[in-house]
Design a protein around this nucleic acid. Structure first.
Lengths: 342, 342
DNA sequence: TTGTAGGCGTTATCAT
DNA sequence: ATGATAACGCCTACAA
């Protein structure tokens, strides 16, 4: 079917070996011979079979990433942004990207094993870590190159290369900002404990209260699934249970959107009656109505830098820094409302 | 390094062939033998080398797609949405996705040749067609399976499998909507002619005027690059050149965002002074300020259906319909403003 | 029921 | 300067 070295060899009367070397630019090939071979290869439209090369070279120049499937349209921009960053950097380094999408759980682990164990990639990017993440355990156990967007929960070692935003500091800034605006009753929407960053963000919330000399109210904290629906439900719970709340902090922008919807559904005005804050600063945040106050995490750049890190780890030239904590930035927008008179 | 059939064979004293067949579930293997082999394979954590399989089977179970790199964060949600759809469907059919990002042009074509000619994928998804698209010409010339999101410009044959929204009808609906709202001076922002859908959308604009018995003003039409910046500049040109405009139709949402910014920059109110419309209905459209009136194109679903189509084409069981035109839907939002008194 | 041989397309090693 | 041989890991005739 397609043009192979053998075909070219036959065509111009040299051996496959010589053809291979001529094309690879070795200098032990007669210049005339090379010209002839190059010409034939070009005429035939030769393209090296990458799969064969991969098998022979035991290298794929491919990076793998597995994302959750996103059935609804705008479900999660986090991964989209991350992939954009990874994609861009990968191209710079002449790597391709292999993507597969699975729901977290058994299927996801099987896919890791299939792709990594099946030698389809030189390295993996693991995103959105869970507490005690089996994917990481697996990759460590077989010593396969990988980098992580995120890190372990605070009580577990993060003994792997990663880049993560300092969630604790981020939430702390956000809550402090609300406190400065005069809020005293601030709700918090947390994802399930199994998400690795939950504990960090929870800590940020507590620290902010502590710093301000305020008491921490456990009943101001609710849990919901990551995503708009989870945020909506958790916010409803909070608003119904503790109507004195004048601000709600959600652990990502998607949940914050849900919370805004809940505030609206309860007949209260976002910003004016109840301030809302998020985390991530996905593109939709600035376009939201009202625009969402949030903690900016440079997801795209994290994707880029992770990819660079991974490529270097694969090449066995790991950068000096392989555990990077990024200082997030507070982005104040209209969902904060105005500072309140004390 | 990793566990191979050979390794298992050695471990349990059978030949590689027998091991291979035991694992593949052939029935000409002694049941006891199979059990033994399965056990050893499991203990060793055997994972078949997918690359070797690909080489031997001349099949990759991988679909390829090449997107433009997106340096800025929220640059283009069209591809993100498409990929989400493709990704979801691909997983259903047990296909993986190979993604690479290149700017349109030589580099992109080289990447097509490298990946397709290099046997890395069983089929390609081509997105955002150009007029007389070299990628399509190439894929057709080597008879490699592919499907297209979009189709050829009106004057060229679309003799390949595709799914496209009926752009002409879409823009026509949008312009008619503005006419119904009482607008008579409606600007149009077009992407360059080289984009295949340009002519369709332009036609939709002209048809709407014709239907309403209004005259078409060429000076109400401007061209800009796809993307927010292009929309901004084109809208500035229009607003400065023909200040009588009370509405602007952009050929996609991103350009519409740029146009909104331009309207704002010229000190006019979006909706009230100048209505703005887009095309695509990317997630940001409904969160925009004000929410953007646009023509909804079900990008995610197109990705899903294209993938299904491609998988069937690869399996040599092409569906009955391989050229699908989707009727888009008009989504009226606040950027339309209110109907004007005649 | 099991094993041998050959090939997928490439590159590396070692002769000539 | 060129070529024969083997190997990457798998699968599939064909033989025994």
């Amino acid at each position: 079917m397609s043009v192979t070295l053998k075909r070219i060899a036959k065509e111009c009367g040299y051996s496959v070996t010589t053809v291979s070397r001529a094309l690879a630019g070795y200098d032990d090939v007669n210049e005339t011979t090379r010209q002839r071979i190059l010409e034939v290869a070009h005429n035939l439209g030769y393209q090296p079979n990458l799969v064969a090369r991969q098998l022979q070279g035991q290298r794929t120049f491919t990076i793998g990433i597995i994302t959750p499937p996103q059935i609804h349209h705008h479900e999660d921009d986090f991964f989209s942004l991350l992939i954009k960053g990874v994609n861009y950097a990968a191209a710079q380094y002449h790597y391709d990207l292999l993507i597969s999408s699975r729901f977290p759980g058994t299927e996801e682990m099987d896919t890791y094993r299939r792709i990594v164990g099946g030698n389809r990639v030189d390295g993996m990017i693991v995103a959105r870590t869970y507490q005690d993440d089996p994917r990481i355990t697996y990759l460590q156990s077989i010593e396969h190159p990988f980098v992580v967007a995120g890190r372990s929960a605070p009580d577990l070692p993060s003994d792997f290369p990663y880049i993560d935003a300092d969630s604790r500091v981020g939430v702390q800034m956000l809550v402090r900002h609300f406190i400065h605006y005069g809020h005293r009753h601030i709700g918090l929407i947390l994802p399930p404990e199994s998400v690795a960053f939950t504990a960090y963000r929870h800590a940020g919330y507590r620290y902010a209260f502590q710093d301000a000399g305020l008491t921490y109210h456990p009943e101001y904290v609710a849990t919901g699934d990551l995503g708009e629906a989870g945020g909506y439900e958790a916010a409803c719970t909070l608003l119904d249970r503790t109507p004195e709340l004048t601000a709600i902090v959600a652990c990502n922008d998607l949940m914050a959107f849900g919370a805004m919807a809940a505030v609206h559904a309860r007949g209260r005005r976002i910003g004016e009656d109840v301030a809302v804050g998020g985390f991530d600063d996905i593109p939709a945040a600035q376009h939201a109505m009202p625009p969402l106050t949030t903690v900016r995490q440079p997801i795209y750049e994290i994707g880029e830098r992770l990819t660079e890190m991974l490529v270097r780890i694969i090449a066995d030239e790991p950068p000096a820094e392989t555990q990077i904590l990024i200082e997030p930035a507070l982005i104040v927008r209209a969902s904060s409302g105005q500072p309140r008179p004390q």
